[in-house]
Write a protein that binds this DNA or RNA. Structure first.
Lengths: 233, 233
DNA sequence: CTTACATTCGTTGCATGCAAGAAAACATCA
DNA sequence: TGATGTTTTCTTGCATGCAACGAATGTAAG
């Protein structure tokens, strides 16, 4: 419950005029400010060199996004999703990505599909090289491209909301560290792309949902390892 | 682009301490304040007898929910979703309700299932009586119960966000007015409930998705009738 | 009549002040 | 020591003031 100062080095002159909300959200989803920490209006106001008013507005938005908890007259704290919430979010993720894959499979030859193909090729390379960190990045890109390929703005918005809530969890639990998971994940990605290329929406959707379900199960395993000590939360 | 006063009768003493955000949202989703209207901070502050600050915070939230558009230094206006957005929202709706039906079918005999069964029975009665208004209400309950039955809080939240954006559209286009739609809709509901009772998640999901897709197509038809004049938007 | 320009008006954006409440620190007493 | 009441401190919640910007209006020139 401490108050970390999160000043990396300079007086915060990185993304100068980036919307305040995005900068604050970035602090949370990047893990710079970990769950439990207090986000004091006054402190943030000084940090970002604005008054408390715009800070307040941003914090309220973050509350509605599920990233912080505002305890009235007490303070705003970075929130850590419960295991239950994470499970629920993964269920949603499965459904939304399945939808996206199906839609993309119906769209013919679009840039996003080509992007996916290239992405999987890169994944193949880094898996052979055993570079887990690089693969992690590519996985992130893969799923984002898949969503973008659905050509549905509302879907993208809901997906991002969802992934922001899972961000910290993703940072902490290294699901790809489980033995054999790298190769399995790659294979699943290949199946998904193949189905999309074949313009087979049903197979594409099913393959995607299976893949996400796999990820969910592995995440639960990894979380169990990590969390071991702390009860529920 | 006028500024409606939306004072029904008394000086607004209905839901006194209901959270400001909900009251404001209610004005929009209920259609009391139609799209295009200005929501002036000063006017709202007087109407709700608070200062501009909490009004501002609420309006910003509504913007993120897609219900209003804030034009900086100009004003906040009630937003009317484009046809494209409505289409996208229906795609999401289809996916989410399908997910809910599948999850509910896996849950065994829960209160929500019994509620659905009773609901469909009532629907059967009002359809025989030809009471379209009553059926419309029951349809609303049906879909909400279905979502609730999934026992997934996050799903419910996303679903509500989505439906709020469709609320005004739902008011305007009476999709059930199309000939034969009442009976067809009832039949689809019956199929859904039957699949859930049979603990068949796959059939339940598919039946639900078909049903929502039907609704979407009919909504498009109804909207085409209505909208006739105004170009795109 | 049309166009360009200046001015006024309306609206938000943000800073700040003050009060209310919660939590912590402290003192007091048994 | 332990428990209890009190004070102090820290935080937000809301009201308000003022500046800045956009739109609309009025005015004059061509």
């Amino acid at each position: 419950m401490q108050q970390s100062s999160f000043t990396t080095s300079a007086p915060s002159r990185s993304a100068a005029d980036a919307p305040l909300l995005d900068r604050l959200r970035g602090l949370i989803v990047s893990g710079v400010v970990p769950p439990g920490d207090l986000l004091g209006e006054t402190a943030l106001a000084e940090e970002f060199e604005v008054s408390r008013t715009p800070i307040r507005e941003a914090l309220k938005q973050l509350e509605r996004e599920g990233l912080v908890e505002i305890r009235p007259r007490v303070g705003t704290f970075v929130r850590k999703p419960s295991q239950r919430e994470i499970y629920e979010l993964f269920q949603l993720k499965e459904s939304l990505e399945g939808l996206a894959a199906g839609l993309l499979a119906q769209r013919g030859d679009v840039p996003e599909l080509r992007s996916l193909i290239r992405n999987v090729e890169s994944e193949h390379d880094v898996v052979r090289a055993g570079d887990r960190a690089a693969y992690s990045t590519l996985v992130h890109d893969f799923h984002h491209t898949l969503i973008a390929g659905a050509d549905n703005q509302k879907l993208s918005e809901h997906y991002e909301l969802l992934m922001n809530q899972l961000a910290y969890h993703r940072i902490v639990t290294q699901t790809l560290a489980l033995p054999g998971r790298l190769d399995a994940s790659l294979g699943e990605h290949q199946q998904i792309v193949l189905a999309i290329q074949s313009k087979d929406p049903i197979t594409a959707e099913l393959a995607t949902r299976r893949h996400v379900a796999q990820t969910r199960e592995n995440a639960a395993l990894a979380a169990f390892r990590e969390d071991g000590a702390s009860p529920s939360n």
